[in-house]
């Protein structure tokens, strides 16, 4: 009897949660869907009935043709890939090592170092654009993927270190000590014992650092806007000139740029969900 009541209330509550989440998901997906299905509509239809689905009269693949012919799109994709994977690799490598050092070792400046990294979380890196621009020019790295990789690595390190620290703290101290007694060095303990145990966290961090990098317009525009180093997102902007806007091509380019992120999500989703829920419970 008394057990039935809370269950009823719980189901009402969970109904509410589902409705709220569904509404949120719909509002998040809607603009994306809008971009995707408008990309296969004629220009007139895009402006005339932007919300209606493509039909027999309005379907038009001209945008994709333009993208395919006009621009250096394979090149842009490659650039985006290099920049994203490069900064992801460096972010994870340094993030993992910094998080391990900060959680595992007590050294003189460790508290201050943690604080310094946390501050990096609070200050948007775009505030430092001018200084970054000057630095990149001084280093002679203008219009190179290296510049972008370095900037994105710096941008993502704080949040990476923070998330990974939380997860590394959950790895049993006894386990690390057992490995030390067996003669494993710190690098071996980190890469051989700790990282396999926090794979979900690493997948989470990977997805969350990768997507903003892939989608970024700001730094490619400022640091690497030459034809040879443009990224997909920057490349798509060429269809939006001051006097001429090719919405078909623009939407087609954006749709294409979503694909890699989507593939990535599907690949990582299991680990990602494990990582998110564990973070939420602990």
């Amino acid at each position: 009897m008394s057990a039935a009541k809370p269950r009823k209330r719980a189901s009402g509550w969970s109904l509410f949660i589902y409705v709220a989440l569904a509404a949120y998901a719909a509002s998040a997906i809607f603009p994306v869907l809008l971009v995707v299905y408008n990309s296969i509509k004629s220009k007139k239809a895009i402006f005339g009935q932007p919300l209606s689905l493509p039909g027999p009269g309005t379907i038009d693949f001209r945008g994709y043709e333009t993208v395919w012919e006009a621009a250096n799109f394979p090149r842009y994709f490659l650039n985006s890939g290099i920049v994203t994977l490069g900064s992801l690799g460096l972010t994870l490598l340094f993030g993992v090592m910094a998080a391990y050092a900060l959680t595992e070792f007590r050294f003189r400046m460790s508290r201050w170092l943690s604080l310094y990294i946390t501050i990096g979380l609070m200050v948007p890196i775009r505030l430092g654009t001018v200084a970054i621009l000057k630095l990149v020019m001084a280093l002679g790295l203008m219009n190179t993927p290296t510049a972008l990789i370095l900037v994105y690595t710096a941008m993502n390190l704080p949040v990476t270190v923070l998330i990974l620290s939380v997860f590394m703290n959950t790895v049993s101290q006894d386990l690390k000590n057992a490995a030390r007694v067996d003669g494993a060095g710190e690098y071996r303990i980190l890469f051989g014992h700790v990282i396999p145990l926090i794979r979900p966290a690493i997948a989470t961090v990977a997805v969350f650092t990768m997507i903003p990098v892939w989608n970024d317009l700001w730094f490619p525009l400022i640091l690497a806007n030459s034809e040879a180093t443009k990224t997909v997102i920057l490349g798509a902007q060429q269809f939006v000139g001051q006097y001429f806007k090719d919405w078909n091509a623009m939407l087609a380019a954006l749709t294409l740029s979503i694909v890699p992120t989507l593939i990535l999500y599907l690949l990582f989703s299991r680990q990602l969900i494990a990582g998110l829920t564990r973070g939420a419970v602990k």
Binding site: S172, D174, L175, N177, A178, A179, H193
Partner: peptide
């Protein structure tokens, strides 16, 4: 050393 939590490599 033998630990309370066994600390086997999982």
């Amino acid at each position: 050393m033998v630990f309370q939590t066994y600390a086997l490599y999982p």
